[in-house]
Design a protein around this nucleic acid. Structure first.
Lengths: 283, 283
DNA sequence: ACTTATAGATGAGTTTAAATCATCTAAGAG
DNA sequence: CTCTTAGATGATTTAAACTCATCTATAAGT
C-alpha cells in the first residue's frame, strides 16, 4: 500500500515554502497540481497536513513531522544524486606538469567540443584523493605497470627550434637539454640508446638537465639549445611549427603513461575520456 | 533537472535485493519495469550502477554509494509515513475505568463496524503520552472546561437490579451505593439535590461509597442495594434489562465528560470518533 | 463600501511517465 | 544437450500526473 512519491515531493516543497503557488514554481508545475497532490495525500493518509486559512496554508503538527522526515529523506537522496551526476558530467584528471601543459590542456577544448555534456578538470601532482572519480595519468616504467593500464609507450628524440639551422652532429659544441626525473627510481632518459641508434658518439654534446621535460622544451623553443625528450610531448609543437625534428630517428623506451586500475572507472564520461586520450596519444 | 523517483525506488529495491526479479516482486511490478528504470537512470546519471554478470547483477562502487543514500532517505520517509498512516487508521482513547467499561468497550464493535478502516484502542488512567494522537476523555467540572471541549453533561439518578421490587422510600432501610471521587477537588455526586427534587428526606438511606461508579453499579446489579450514579453509565444496562430505573427523576449536575483541546486533533479518524462518541453519549 | 487581485479548490480533459506484453539472449542447472 | 531462468529491448497499453477552465473566499487597493 503505497503513497505517490510525486505527491510527497509536492508536499515537501509546499511545507517548506508555505505556499502551493511557490511550491508549484519550484517544481515547474501548476498550483492545481500541488493542490491535487496534497488533497490526495491527505485522503490517503487519513490526516490533515495543512490548516486552510482562507487563501493561506499552515502546517498541522502532523504535517510538520511528516515535512521534517520527507525533507531529511529527500535531501539525503538529492545530495547523493548530485554527487553521482557531477561525477557523471565532469572528468577529473591529474597528471604530470609536462603532460598537462603539452597535451591535455592544449586539447581540452577539442575533448569538450566532442563531448558537450562533459567538462574536464585538469590538475597536476600526485595528490591522493579519496574520491574515486579522479583519473590519474602516471608516468613510469612500463614493465611495472599492468598491460591494460598503459595508454602510451614513450619514444624519445631530439628537437630544436623551428627555423634554426640543423646542427652539425660532429663539429660544433651542442647544448642538449634533458631530464633528471624527480622520481629517483626511474632510469634516465635513453640518450645512450638514441646516440647509438643514430650512429653518433656525442663527444661534442654538453648536457644540461632539468627535473621536468617541459623546461627543456621551452629552452629549445627559445633557441638556447636542443632538447632530448618524449615525442608525445612535442607532437603538437611540431605541427604548429614551434619545434622541428631533424634527420635523427626516435628511440622507443621502457617509459610509459598509464592509468592505474583503468577499467575500474564506472562513469560513462570516464570511459569516453580514456578512449579519447588513448586516441590522442597514439594516433 | 530531475530523475524519476519511481526509478530511484526501483534501483534501491534492486540494490538491496541483488536482483531485478526480487525487486519487481517486492514492488508488485514486472522485472521488465525494473530493468527499464535502471537503464534509464544509468543513462540519465551517466554512470553504471550495476555490473551485469551474465544474468546476475552486482552493484558498482558508485551504485553502492547511491544505494546507501537512497536506502537511508527512503527509510526515513517510510518511517514517518508509517507513523502518520497508523495515526490515521487507529483511534486511541484513554478515559476513566467506568466510562470505558460502561460505554466505550460495549460499543467499540459498533464504531468499528461503522468505520471499517479505523480501529479503536481503549486504555484507562490519565497517563500523559507525548504522542498527540491519543484522545483523552476526562471527567470533571463543566464550569472549568472549555464549552467546546464538553461532550456530555452528566445527570444522576438511582438505579436498581432489574426485576427487584421497587423500594419504599419512607419505610425500610435502603442501602445506597454512591461514589467518593479519587479526585478530591471534585464536589460529591449531587445526592442532596436528587433527594430534594424527588421530595425525599433520605432518613432511611444507608450510604456506602466506592471510589468508582462502576463498583456501585455492579453491586446494584447483584441486588445488594441501589446505586446513585450517572445516567450515562447506566443507559445501556437499562436497555439490556440489567438495571431498572424507578419513578424517581434524574438531576442535572455540574459534572461533565470533556476532551481537552478537542478541535486540535488532525486525523480524519479522530474527527469521526469524536462525532460518533458525542452522538452515543447524547442521543 | 466597492472593485480588483490573488491563492487555493474542484471537476473534466489531456499528456506523459510507468507499466506490461512479446520476444530475445546468454547464463546456469539438470 | 536440453530446459530453465534472469535480464534486455522495442512496441503497446495503462494509469498517474498534469493542465485547463471555473469557482470561492480572502486580502489589497481605491
Amino acid at each position: 500500500m503505497q503513497v505517490s512519491l510525486q505527491a510527497l515531493k509536492a508536499f515537501e516543497a509546499a511545507a517548506r515554502r508555505g505556499s502551493f503557488k511557490l511550491a508549484a514554481e519550484e517544481l515547474s508545475l501548476t498550483p492545481t497540481a500541488i493542490s491535487h497532490h496534497i488533497t490526495n495525500l491527505e485522503s490517503r493518509l487519513n490526516v490533515n497536513l495543512f490548516h486552510r486559512l482562507g487563501r493561506r496554508i499552515l502546517l498541522t503538527e502532523t504535517g510538520k513531522r511528516l515535512a521534517k522526515a520527507t525533507s531529511d529523506g529527500f535531501r539525503k537522496i538529492d545530495s547523493a544524486l548530485e554527487e553521482v551526476m557531477k561525477a557523471g558530467s565532469v572528468v577529473r584528471v591529474t597528471t604530470t606538469s609536462s603532460l598537462a601543459a603539452m597535451v591535455l590542456i592544449p586539447s581540452q577544448h577539442e575533448f569538450e567540443q566532442a563531448n558537450p555534456d562533459i567538462s574536464m578538470e585538469i590538475s597536476t601532482g600526485e595528490s591522493v584523493d579519496s574520491q574515486s572519480y579522479i583519473i590519474p595519468i602516471r608516468f613510469g616504467d612500463a614493465s611495472l605497470a599492468e598491460d591494460s593500464d598503459v595508454i602510451r609507450f614513450e619514444s624519445f628524440n631530439v628537437f630544436g627550434a623551428y627555423g634554426m639551422t640543423p646542427p652539425s652532429w660532429s663539429n660544433d659544441p651542442i647544448t642538449l637539454f634533458t631530464t633528471e626525473w624527480k622520481n629517483k627510481s626511474l632510469q634516465d632518459p635513453p640518450l645512450g640508446a638514441w646516440l647509438e641508434k643514430n650512429g653518433l658518439d656525442g663527444s661534442n654534446i654538453k648536457l644540461k638537465k632539468f627535473d621536468q621535460e617541459l623546461f627543456g622544451i621551452q629552452q629549445a623553443m627559445a633557441e638556447n639549445g636542443l632538447v632530448f625528450c618524449s615525442t608525445t610531448l612535442t607532437k603538437r609543437l611540431l605541427k604548429s611549427n614551434l619545434l622541428q625534428q631533424f634527420e635523427t630517428r626516435s628511440v622507443k623506451s621502457d617509459f610509459c603513461y598509464y592509468v592505474p586500475n583503468k577499467d575500474s572507472f564506472e562513469t560513462r564520461s570516464a570511459a569516453r575520456f580514456l578512449n579519447w586520450i588513448e586516441d590522442v596519444l597514439n594516433q
